[in-house]
Nucleic acid binder design. Structure first.
Length: 303
RNA sequence: AGGGGUAUGAUGUAAUGGUAACAUUACGGUCUCCAAAACCGUCCUUGAGGGUUCGAGUCCUUCUACCCCUG
């Protein structure tokens, strides 16, 4: 019999953190964060990282495991999260994966093939200099199928594909979305009325500002000169521009709110098409994390 | 109150009298190692009325609103 692995997904500010903690408390579980930004140490306020107090003694994995200037990727997450699941199960506890990074969750629930591809920063840099049309032409010559699938303007994916082709040849034979059969995934999605969520996002950004987000970003900017991935995070990239004097603080806050709304929208789109997810409208549960956790446990039992 | 100026989508702007355009927002979507990233698509406009003209965002006129100057 396969072991259960609970997954709590949903857009930002939908209440995943609290529900995950309740779920873990009620079923003797531990939490694995599937969040591409809570990975980084020191990025606390802006990523809405749960404080030690909020964690209520529940063990959290994959939070604060990298420095902001260290590279991190899905491939590393896939490996680390799988190890965490095994570790938690071996101690007789239940893994509860909580997170809003869709690709990370897919890396766990599907058998995405991230076999050792040597990163080739030199090649990448070189290719990024070229214009999109030229790159797409190069891709077309080497892999017609991929060229058809990837939009000519999508430089990032074209370059990535060329990198794979150069370093390990064609591996187009792999299945597209092959489910990971190793565990029984119980997938729950949290959602609520769009206008309500957007309002909550706006309020949360104001709260983060009040809690000292500007100070947090200032400290990080002083400590790390180059942090390519982590400083793309919403709340950080905008405030960096403010600190450099490019935009006003008011404008930065406005952009953080807007970018957070866009992000939430993309998360919806991503998760909505995943028919394995059972959705819970948090308003129907009075936004009570404990009640929602109980409903998700019933979902697990009825599977 | 007198004089001058401006009026184009939600916002900022463009259009020798000749198909009203661009960016942002909003909305919809894509996704196999930077994913809070990257990329694609859709909607919405000439302040109101009258006139000149084959044809008006553009020229004339009245009104309205806003801005500046004077007292």
């Amino acid at each position: 019999m396969k072991n259960d692995v609970y997954i709590v997904a949903g857009p930002t500010a939908s209440g995943k953190t609290a529900v995950g903690i309740e779920l873990a408390k009620q079923m003797n579980g531990e939490i694995i964060s599937a969040d591409s930004m809570q990975i980084y140490r020191g990025m606390d306020i802006g990523t809405a990282k749960p404080s030690m107090h909020e964690r209520q003694g529940v063990v959290h994995h994959l939070i604060d495991i990298a420095e902001p200037d260290e590279p991190y990727s899905v491939a590393m997450f896939q490996k680390a999260a799988t190890a965490c699941i095994e570790d938690i199960l071996s101690r007789g506890k239940t893994p509860v994966v909580v997170g809003g990074t869709g690709l990370y969750l897919n890396a766990l629930t599907y058998e995405l093939d991230f076999t050792e591809t040597s990163h080739d920063p030199v090649l990448r840099e070189e290719l990024m200099q070229k214009d999109a049309a030229e790159l797409h032409q190069m891709l077309f010559e080497q892999d017609e199928a991929a060229a058809g699938r990837i939009h000519p303007n999508d430089k990032k994916r074209i370059v990535r594909r060329l990198e794979i082709l150069k370093n390990e040849g064609d591996r187009s034979e792999y299945q597209f979305r092959k489910p990971n059969e190793a565990y029984r995934f119980i997938m729950a999605g949290l959602t609520t009325d769009r206008a309500v969520l957007y309002e909550r996002i706006n309020e949360r950004v104001d709260r983060m500002a009040g809690q000292g987000l500007v100070g947090e970003v200032t400290a990080l900017a002083q400590k790390y000169t180059a942090a390519p991935t982590s400083m793309q995070a919403i709340g950080y990239k905008e405030l960096l521009r403010y600190l450099q004097g490019d935009i006003t603080l008011e404008r930065a806050i406005y952009e953080i709110k807007r970018n957070s709304r866009h992000y939430a929208k993309r998360q919806w789109v991503w998760f909505r098409r995943d028919e394995r997810i059972t959705w819970y409208d948090t308003a129907e549960y009075n936004n009570d994390a404990s009640l929602i956790a109980q409903a998700i446990m019933r979902q697990g039992n009825h599977f």
